[in-house]
Structures are given as C-alpha cells and as structure tokens.
Amino acid sequence: MTAVRRIDDAAVEGRADPNSIRKVYNFNGVIGAESVAPFQESVAQRIDQLSPRYPTSG
C-alpha cells in the first residue's frame, strides 16, 4: 500500500474528505547542469519529468 493510500484511508476513517488533505512530495537529487545520470539534472529537465505526473496543485 502506498503512503498516499494510507493517508487517504486514514482520512476516510477519521470522517474527513481525502481530497482535503494536502500531500507534499520531496524529490531528492542534484540540480545543476543537464545530465543523463539519474537524480542529476537541470531545472528544465526536472520540470519536464515532474509536471506530467502532477498536473494540478491546490
């Protein structure tokens, strides 16, 4: 079970709307020059990798 699923299940158990719970993600890595190495990329590469996965924020 994923961490997000556990959070959502706990919200439902506590009679809260799971969508009302803000989730924060921490992506580790080195931001610098463009690179093909994992977790070492430029800002543009990081944005290109993450933005399709998280289309909205609230």
Score class of each variant (00 low, 15 high):
A37L: 14
I31R: 04
P55A: 11
V30N: 03
A16F: 01
E41K: 01
P38N: 07
M1L: 04
Q40T: 11
A44C: 02
A33Q: 08
F39L: 10
G14A: 13
I47N: 03
T2F: 06
I21E: 06
D9Y: 01
D8C: 07
G14Q: 08
A10L: 14
Q49Y: 11
G32R: 00
D8M: 06
Y25S: 08
V36H: 10
Q45M: 09
V43T: 13
G58V: 11
Q45E: 12
Q45L: 06
G58Q: 10
A44N: 08
A11L: 12
I47C: 04
A3E: 05
E34Y: 02
V30M: 11
A37V: 10
D48T: 07
R5E: 14
S57R: 00
V30P: 00
P38L: 10
Y54L: 13
P18Q: 11
I21L: 14
D48N: 06
T2E: 11
A37Q: 13
S35E: 07
R5S: 02
N26C: 07
A3N: 03
G32A: 08
S57P: 03
N19M: 12
R22I: 03
I47S: 02
Q45W: 01
I21A: 15
V4D: 13
F27V: 11
V43C: 08
N26Y: 12
G58P: 14
R5N: 04
G32N: 05
G14W: 00
